[in-house]
């Protein structure tokens, strides 16, 4: 990794906050937990860029937890698919393409998402197509942990295991909170690794807010043959500022002026620390 991706991740978190302030709404908690996985995928792992969006051999990504779109916009803008200023100016505005969930009218976005439980099965189709055509494509999706209550996720888990799709890697953003509270209270997912392993997946559990740890997990997934890989990215919802961290109320929230100042100061401080590490 040539770039300091940890510092980049904290800088992009600041963009996320500003996007949410500009749009007057957004799923801030999940944006903050998932952004390290997105940064690792787009700046360390995937063969994807604005120059190769039509290359059939490119890697493919679907943000199954589509409500984390603000983090996705920040990452895609940094990658050059559009500009950060465009997002700031248009997010959630009347007539805008920058809506509150990913849509493929925007460059860099393959599939529309927003309704949970769709990303994994769609990625199975992509992975099957890549295998049929003998392409080097790897296919990635990121799901939320609350999302795992959707039955269609398990239809997908079954099929990916059945077809031994080793060109497919799914990530669960395991931040342990959903809109109503703890995932374990709403619909528990403990023994997650065992569940996926039982469906025929190779399972890796890592610190999902550590880019070096995510890098290692994605590399291991690439080396895994004969079955798909699930990365349980153990994350902190709202990661980056104690104002938001591990608080279910920050699932979808716009910071007040005071909260904004504190969050931005916290994120800047962590960016500085990362830059000097």
């Amino acid at each position: 990794m040539e770039q300091n991706l940890t510092a980049l991740s904290y800088r992009l978190r600041q963009h996320v906050v500003d996007i949410i302030m500009a749009g007057k709404g957004g799923h801030i908690g999940g944006d903050m937990s998932v952004i390290d996985a997105l940064v690792t995928l787009y700046f360390d792992q995937m063969n994807i860029s604005p120059e190769n969006v039509n290359d059939p051999d490119r890697d493919l990504f679907v943000l199954s937890k589509g409500h984390s779109v603000e983090a996705y916009y920040a990452v895609l803008a940094e990658k050059g698919f559009f500009t950060y200023e465009e997002v700031l100016e248009n997010f959630s505005k009347f007539g805008s393409k920058f809506i509150g969930h990913p849509n493929n009218k925007l460059p860099g976005i393959e599939m529309n998402s927003g309704s949970l439980g769709h990303g994994l099965p769609v990625c199975i189709g992509m992975a099957l197509a890549a295998r049929m055509d003998n392409r080097p494509t790897r296919v990635y999706t990121v799901m939320g942990d609350g999302e795992l209550a959707e039955g269609s996720v398990w239809e997908g888990a079954m099929a990916a295991g059945h077809y031994r799709l080793d060109n497919l890697c799914a990530v669960v953003d395991r931040n342990r909170l959903q809109i109503s509270g703890s995932t374990e209270d709403v619909m528990h997912h403990d023994n997650l690794a065992d569940r996926w392993a039982a469906f025929g997946w190779h399972v890796i559990s890592v610190d999902g807010n550590s880019i070096p740890a995510l890098h290692g997990a994605f590399e291991e997934a690439k080396q895994t043959k004969g079955c798909p890989t699930l990365i349980i990215a153990n994350t902190t919802k709202g990661c980056g500022s104690p104002v938001m961290e591990n608080k279910a109320a920050w699932h979808h929230k716009v910071p007040t002026a005071e909260e904004y100042a504190q969050i931005m100061a916290d994120l800047k401080a962590r960016e500085e620390v990362a830059l000097h590490e």
């Binding site: 769609v122 199975i124 189709g125 992509m126 197509a129 239809e155």
Partner: peptide, 12 residues
Amino acid sequence: NLVSISAGLAKC
């Protein structure tokens, strides 16, 4: 799954 997998295949 039938429909979502179809969509993924079609995307490719």
